[in-house]
Amino acid sequence: MKTGKSRLLSRSLRITAITYLVVMLVLPLLALFSDSLSEGIVSFWKNMSQPVALHALKLTLITASVMAVVNAIMGTITAYVLTRYSFFGKSLLSSLVDIPFAIPTLVTGVMLVILYGPNGVVGTWLKEVFNLQVVFAPTGILLALLFVGLPYVVRSVQPVLHEVDVDQEEAASTMGASTWLTFRRVLFPALRPAILSGTLLSFARALGEFGSVVVVAGNIPMYSQTASVYIMGEIESQNQVAASSMSVVLLTLSFATILFVDWYTRDKSLEAGEVPEVAEV
C-alpha cells in the first residue's frame, strides 16, 4: 500500500517533469508557430515566397543534400577503412573523427577561411589555377557542412561494421563474389539502416547550421545566404514574422527528418532482433 506521503511525492515528481518539458520545449515551439502565423497564413506565405527567402531555403536544401550524399559515401568508406584495415596512425585518425563535434562551429568557419580564403594557401591556388572561389561562395557552405557532418555517418556505421564478422565477407569471396558484389550483397544490407540514419541526422544538422556558415559563406542574399543566416538577418532588421516563418519551415523539415530516423531505426532493430533458438530437429 502506498502511503499518502509517497503518493504526494510521485505526483509532484510527475508535475515537475511535465511542467519542465512544457516550459522548456512546448512553450517556445508554440510561440514560434503562433508568431509565424500572427499576421495570418497569407502573410506567412508572402514572407516565404519572397525571392530572397526562397533562394535561401533552396540553397540550404541543396547544400545540405549534396553534403548528405557525399557524407554517406565518404563516411561509409572511412568507417570501413577504420574498422577493417590496420595502418600507422589509425587510432589517432579514428579519434580525430569526433573533432567536428567538439569544435565550436564558429571556429570551424575561421579555420576554413584561413585555409581557403583569398589569402589562404589553398584558396589562392584554387583561385589561380581553377578560378574557383571557395570562401564567400556556396562551395564554402558545402565545405563547412561537410566538416560539421563528418562524424555522423562514420560513427553510426562503425559499430555495425564491428558486428558484421569478416567471416561473412570471406565466405562470399570463397563463393566467387568480387569485392564490390560482396559489399553490395553482404555488407551493404547490414549497413543500410546505419548509413541512412547517419546521413539523415547529418542532413538535419546541416539544415540549421549557422556558426561555420556565417563565417564562410559571405552571406550575399540571392547568392550565398542560407536559411539560418537569413533568419538572423530578419531578426536584426526587426522583421520578426519573416524570421519565424522561415524558422517554422526549417524546424518542420529537421523535425520530420529526425522523426523518420527514429521510426526507421526502431523498426529495423525489431526486425533484426534475435529470435529465440529453435530446438534441433
Binding site: 558484421v164 564478422d165 567471416d167 561473412q168 570471406e170 565466405a171 562470399a172 569471396s173 570463397t174 563463393m175 566467387g176 563474389a177 568480387s178 550483397r185 553482404v186 544490407p189 547490414a190 533484426a272
Partner: peptide
Amino acid sequence: PIQERNVGFVFQHYALFKHMTVWDNVAFG
C-alpha cells in the same frame, strides 16, 4: 584469387549471411 579457386569453405562460426534466408544463403554462390 580466392574467387576463382572454386573451393568450398565452412567457418567455425558458420559465417551465414544474417539478413538472408536459408534458401538465399545456399543460392548465393
